[in-house]
């Protein structure tokens, strides 16, 4: 057994242990903390599978942003002391759920062991077709070229998520600012980080976005970093979140998906197929869309964390 195998075994065992910990944890906060660790280890697993793009996304979105969302929810629950009117499940119920989960797990395991080996894959076809898009990163080729419609629609889902969260606003708070009023941190690590990190973070995000055309990286990862940089000063109480009624804020969320859709219709009119890029202009179009989209995704992600406006 090589060192690599040993590392894989350890990571797999730790992932399972953390997953179990999330399920068994009695405290909401403990479960969330374990979940963040789980997400980070999943990132490691993707690195071991040589899927760096997925690893970056898993760490940024799966661990970072989801963790932040869950922490916010846990804190809210602790503050409002939400009544737990759900009765704890009966023993029979627990056993039934356990059996169902075990069955699904066993069936999945058996199915995965029975999959054809080597697995049929579209990867060679992707690599062979990549020059047509003038890109070096096959993942970007799939996301912005061959399966661009899925990416476009996922970006639209993000805008819809913002609308869905804002729909939970109390009527009298409509158009106001989200309830992220923190005591101003004047000293300590948060105050320092909130002042120091954003300039570096923005540079890193720009780099991650730019290299995404040819190397692991891209808009979702860059957007997650940008969103974090934007959230930091709010968390430290150094800046106030913008009101949800602000026209510029709403436009910022929508402009990315709209630019993508516009590029799609451009392809339909000029090239005869939705999302077809003009020969020679593919990379330029993709990069332009990605830049605008990164901004929109970053704003949307930050708004998801900030939540609906609150009555003051």
């Amino acid at each position: 057994m090589t060192a690599g195998h040993l590392a894989d075994l350890l990571i797999a065992a730790a992932i399972l242990a953390l997953a179990l910990g999330v399920v068994l944890a009695r405290q909401v906060f403990t479960a969330v903390a374990l979940f963040v660790a789980f997400g980070l280890l999943m990132g490691f697993a993707w690195v071991r599978l040589e899927a760096l793009d997925v690893a970056l996304t898993e760490a940024a979105i799966g661990a970072g942003l989801s963790g932040l969302l869950l922490l916010g929810a846990a804190r809210r629950l602790a503050r409002t002391g939400a009544p737990v009117d759900e009765k704890p499940p009966r023993r029979a119920q627990v056993v039934a759920i356990g059996i169902a989960c075990a069955t699904v797990t066993a069936a999945l395991g058996a199915a995965i062991l029975a999959l054809p080996d080597p697995a049929p894959s579209l990867a060679p076809m992707v690599v062979a077709s990549l020059p047509a898009l003038d890109l070096g990163n096959p993942v970007t080729g799939v996301l912005m070229g061959f399966r661009a419609l899925d990416t476009l629609l996922e970006a639209a889902v993000l805008a819809l998520a913002v609308i869905g969260i804002w729909a939970l606003t109390p009527n009298r708070a409509w158009g106001g600012a989200p309830g992220w009023t923190q005591p101003r941190a004047t000293e300590g690590p948060l105050a320092l980080l909130a002042r120091l990190l954003p300039p570096f973070g923005i540079v890193v995000a720009a780099h991650v976005l730019w290299v995404g055309a040819d190397a692991p990286g891209g808009k979702f990862q860059a957007a997650a970093i940008l969103a974090a940089m934007w959230l930091l000063p709010w968390m430290a109480g150094l800046a106030a979140p913008p009101p949800t009624g602000a026209a510029w804020l709403r436009a910022a969320v929508a402009v990315g998906p709209l630019a993508f859709i516009l590029a799609g219709f451009g392809g339909l009119l000029l090239e005869g197929a939705f999302l077809a890029y003009a020969p020679g202009a593919a990379k330029a179009t993709i990069l332009a869309v990605e830049v605008v989209l990164t901004g929109s995704i970053a704003v949307a992600l930050a708004l998801l964390v900030l939540g609906p406006a609150v009555a003051r």
């Binding site: 709403r250 998906p257 709209l258 939705f274």
Partner: peptide, 28 residues
């Protein structure tokens, strides 16, 4: 050739509502 002459009709039936959904956010 991957497409039929009227294939853009169902495409528009999907994309116009989606575009409208996104545009509704800044429109108010």
């Amino acid at each position: 050739d991957g497409a039929t002459p009227w294939g853009f009709l169902p495409l528009l039936a999907v994309m116009l509502p989606v575009a409208g959904m996104v545009a509704a956010l800044p429109l108010g």
